[in-house]
Design a protein around this nucleic acid. Sequence first.
DNA 1: CTAAAACCTGACGCTGACGTCAGAGGCAAG
DNA 2: CTTGCCTCTGACGTCAGCGTCAGGTTTTAG
Lengths: 129, 129
Amino acid sequence: MRIGELAKQTGASVRALRYYEEQGLLSAQRTSSAQRVYGADAVERVRLLRRLYTAGLNSATIASLLPCVDRPSEAVTLESLDVMQRERARLSDQIDELLTTRDQLTYLIETASAFHRDQLDTAHTAVPA
Amino acid sequence: MRIGELAKQTGASVRALRYYEEQGLLSAQRTSSAQRVYGADAVERVRLLRRLYTAGLNSATIASLLPCVDRPSEAVTLESLDVMQRERARLSDQIDELLTTRDQLTYLIETASAFHRDQLDTAHTAVPA
DNA sequence: CTAAAACCTGACGCTGACGTCAGAGGCAAG
DNA sequence: CTTGCCTCTGACGTCAGCGTCAGGTTTTAG
């Protein structure tokens, strides 16, 4: 599969895929004319990358973790374990904050829609009377 | 309270506070010499702003929600309700993704540290024998 | 009174994850 | 064989949320 197809299947842009390769996060075979060729597993890889990016990791951090993902048997150093645990803790904190924020939004929506209903009711009963 | 004190109490930088004001997210009284003066409630306001920022909202989106926060009685339009519900849905999706990512990280850490223990054990039992 | 610390308004700088354009080459269809 | 789409490698552009510096005023401590 070539880069356009991979882009379609993952939702990432072609530019983004090249960028991932540039950052050492995604590798590709090349044809004799230098076109990138990906295996089917690249789809999952890209989805993993996007998940990690949206989780707030940057390219360098992701790059430091990928060896553990790819070869958990060899590439596990104390440092990479440390990075993973740090990021996990950061993630947990972030999740807690997002949950709090969501609760606040929920509260906001409830009180706001209550007010809104009141306004509508008032308007509604005020007109026909 | 002046801007430096507010910065201390919230953890935001002075520059960030001025930026929030510039974006219409934070208002201040002014002294005759144009220095900003904040009430005690500004602390909570800034914390709310930072939570919303780290939840992935941008200045414009936050600005569109703040009227509902400040005056839920008047400023609630159908559009702002829509914005809030959209953002809440986005937040929920994001939380789900982060939970998934955290689970993957947890799994990674477990298998990796298991391998790492194996290596240590092997090295440890290989030397003294 | 004075020096340090805090504050003000511009305005340019930075960073990361891409977008976008230029200019050139590849590849399947008719 | 050529038309149209895909791909390639640079390389510059963008955008948001600030950082930072300049050049000047204000407040506070001694």
